[in-house]
Simulated scan of single mutants.
Amino acid sequence: MEGRTRRYLQGRFRDYYRGVDLDLPPAADRREWGHIPWTSGTGTTMIRHQSLLDLGDLATFLREDAPRHVYFSAARFRDPGASRMADKGWESADLVFDLDADHLPGVDPEATSYAEMLSACKDALLRLLDLLDDDFAFTDTEVVFSGGRGYHVHVRDEGVAELDSEERREIVDYIRANDLDLDGLIETRAVEGTPRRVLRTEGGWGRRVHENLLDYVAELQEMDEDDAMDRLQELDGIGEGRATTILGAVEANPDAIQRGNVEAGGPGVRTLLQAIARETVGVESGGRIDAETAPIDEPVTTDTNRLIRFPGSLHGGSGLRVVRLDRGELADFDPLVDAVPARFTDREIAVEVMDPVEGRLGGDSFTLSAGRHSVPEHVGVFLMARGQAEKVQQ
């Protein structure tokens, strides 16, 4: 990034911070704060081990220094400004989840547009929230668009604050269904006085597998026999003979399948259940049902000292706002519109585009060849922050 571009972006970030009031996180004075300034060259320098006392008034600091990135710690400390982690006096930490569009299964950053990656990441976010709400019953959660490629979820329930890294890793393993014991989804239960192996349908992964099983069986019942046979044989471990057995069980014992009785129909139904379970948790098995896991970034969740982006700040790699979101806003939230700072939408600027680029931002699409262009400022800031353009004199 050239000096002119760096100075321009820092100046516009400064103007942004002069026009906003930002809410601090809970216990802000017990958290470590960090930031990345607009240094010259290709590298970046993280300045951390600071408390609010070290920064002075945060609003004044942001308006005067206008850093490229701003962070605070998930953890709360007795002495957050201590220069060594061992001296800070760790007390507790939020449980933080990070979803990054670049790391989503099936998303190739080289072949997928920014808008498409963000859309896929929002889908993953909704799956994560479903797991956190239904399986863990967390009540104090905060959702944040990162300003870059994804979303953060902060959980501040008292029950998680003092979990160590290994305990947090167990939560990660559950959400990602790492090494999930499929046999453990089945229990032995008395049915009409007779012991039966029955799928656990009350909650968790057992409930999800059962719901997908019922949806799959409902589809089979709507098909003619040949189509149903073909559909079944798309699943691993099911050949023609096993498919015939399954269809017979579906016709003869629909109530038993509804109850999750895996013995109804013999080994055929058990094979079907295993195939549906593998798909539900994302194990390859025909690819029919989308996995219901959430591809969270494990190191972020297990790191009890993690620095995370400050909501309301600007992301120095995009020029977009880090946005705190209410649950009711998620369905309609479009980061490429709603995270664009209003401060950057009222004029055009001249930039030198390095390579041909196209995209969508602020509700408009753009297609630019390499060379000099006059563009809406929010587009110019976005391209310059991403290293795709440089500022030129007007």
Rank of each mutant, 00 (worst) to 15 (best):
T42E: 14
H69W: 12
A28T: 10
D23C: 12
W33M: 10
G43M: 05
L62H: 01
L58E: 00
R48T: 09
G19V: 00
E32S: 04
G89I: 06
D100Q: 01
D21K: 14
S40I: 07
R14E: 11
V96W: 03
D21Q: 15
D21P: 06
P37Y: 06
S73R: 01
G89H: 01
T44M: 11
G81L: 03
L22C: 09
A28E: 06
L62C: 06
S73H: 02
Y71T: 07
A27H: 09
P25T: 11
P37K: 09
M85W: 08
I47M: 05
Y17A: 10
R18E: 15
Q10I: 13
D21C: 12
W90R: 00
F72K: 05
S83R: 14
E32A: 02
L55W: 01
G19W: 08
K88G: 02
E91P: 00
A86R: 08
R18C: 07
P67F: 08
L62T: 03
R63S: 08
F72T: 04
D23S: 15
I36H: 11
D98N: 02
A59P: 01
S92K: 04
D100I: 06
L53N: 11
P37R: 06
A28W: 04
I36T: 09
P26A: 12
T39R: 08
R14C: 11
L58V: 13
P25N: 10
D100K: 02
L58T: 04
D79K: 07
A27Q: 13
S40K: 12
P67C: 13
V20K: 11
T39C: 06
R84V: 12
T44N: 10
H35T: 05
G34Y: 08
A28Q: 04
G43K: 14
L24N: 08
A93K: 00
D65V: 15
L22Y: 01
G89L: 09
T42K: 15
L95A: 05
A74Y: 07
F13M: 07
G34L: 04
D87V: 10
D98H: 03
